[in-house]
Design a protein around this nucleic acid. Structure first.
Lengths: 153, 153
DNA sequence: TTAGGTGCAAATTCTTTGCACCCTG
DNA sequence: CAGGGTGCAAAGAATTTGCACCTAA
C-alpha cells in the first residue's frame, strides 16, 4: 500500500529544502532513499529500502542506506518506529500501564492512567486487524538529562 | 528506583505458579533473573540484568539471561519495551500520527486521531521530565495473519 | 533417573566505521 | 576544484545456537 504521489512530491520538496538549509549535498542516492521511505506506508527497515532500490541502483550499499536514513532522522524528516538503536528491554509490570521514555538517555518509567487504558480506537484501525493492546508512549527529556544539558556552557 | 518488596513478592508468587503450570523448571537462575526484572522500575536490558546479578552469580551467562527473559515473555510474565527483536524501521510521515502494529508479522500502519493527539498527560509524568511527544501504539493481529492463522488446521 | 536447563564458545544478524575514489555545489 | 558522500570490506554490537555437562522434579 503506497501513498498518493502528490503527498510524496510534497515530502520531497520538503526534503530538498531541508537539505539545502542544512548544507548537505543532494545526491541521487539520498533522493531515491528518501523517496522510497516517503512513498511507503509500511515503514521499511534499511534492508527493505535497499532491496527495493537495488534493481534501479545496483551499486547502492546498505551502509549508505543507513547513513542516509540517520541523516534524514537528524534533519527531522524521518522518525523511527519504537525507540532507536538500542537493545531490547524487559518489563515485568503485569498491570496495564504506559511509558515515559527519555529520548536522551533512554530512561523508562511506568505510569498509569485509566483514561489511557480505555481510549476510543478510531474505526479506521479495525480495517487493519484485531486490537489487543493499546499503549501510550510519552517521550521527553528526563530531569537528570535536563540538568546535564544546562550545565554544558 | 526500585519497587516495594511486597509487590515483588507478589510477582514472584505469580511466576512460580506460572512456571509450575507450564511445566518448566524453577531454577535458581530463572528465579534470580525474574526477581531482578520484577524489582526494577527501569526496564533493564539483558546485559543490565547480567551486570546486576554477576556479583552473586559469577557463572551466570548472558545467553541464559536472554533465554530466560524470552521464556518469561512466552509465559506472559514480562513484555518488551518497543517492538521486539527487529531491525530499526523508518517513518517519513511528518504529520502527528499513531501506529497500528501486527504482533505476528510486524506490519505497521499509520492512523490519525485528534483525540490521541491531545491526551491529558497525568501529572505524575511531569515528575519524570519534559513532555515532547505522545504517541499511541495499538497492537493486534492484522487481517492477513488472521487468515493465515485460521488456515492452519 | 532423566529431560530440560545451563555455560561456554562460536555463529548470526544488524549496524557502524576506515579508507580511497567520486560527484555535487 | 574541494570537501562532503559513496562503496567496499572489515569491525562492532546485540542476540542466538550447538553441544556436553549439570540439576530440578
Amino acid at each position: 500500500m503506497n501513498l498518493a504521489s502528490s503527498e510524496v512530491e510534497r515530502r520531497i520538496v520538503r526534503f530538498k529544502r531541508a537539505a539545502r538549509e542544512a548544507g548537505v549535498k543532494l545526491t541521487h542516492q539520498r533522493l531515491e532513499i528518501f523517496r522510497e521511505v516517503a512513498a511507503r506506508a509500511d515503514h521499511p527497515s534499511a534492508e527493505a529500502v535497499l532491496t527495493a532500490l537495488k534493481p534501479q541502483m545496483p551499486t547502492l550499499s546498505l551502509d549508505t542506506v543507513y547513513r542516509t536514513l540517520w541523516l534524514l532522522h537528524d534533519l527531522g524528516l524521518v522518525s523511527t518506529l519504537g525507540p532507536k538503536r538500542e537493545s531490547v528491554r524487559f518489563d515485568a509490570n503485569p498491570e496495564p500501564h504506559h511509558h515515559y521514555i527519555c529520548v536522551s538517555c533512554g530512561l523508562a518509567r511506568d505510569f498509569e492512567s485509566t483514561e489511557f487504558n480505555s481510549l476510543n480506537i478510531p474505526k479506521a484501525v479495525n480495517g487493519f486487524g484485531s486490537v489487543d493492546t493499546t499503549h501510550v508512549e510519552v517521550r521527553g527529556i528526563c530531569l537528570k538529562c535536563q540538568e546535564k544539558g544546562s550545565k554544558k556552557p
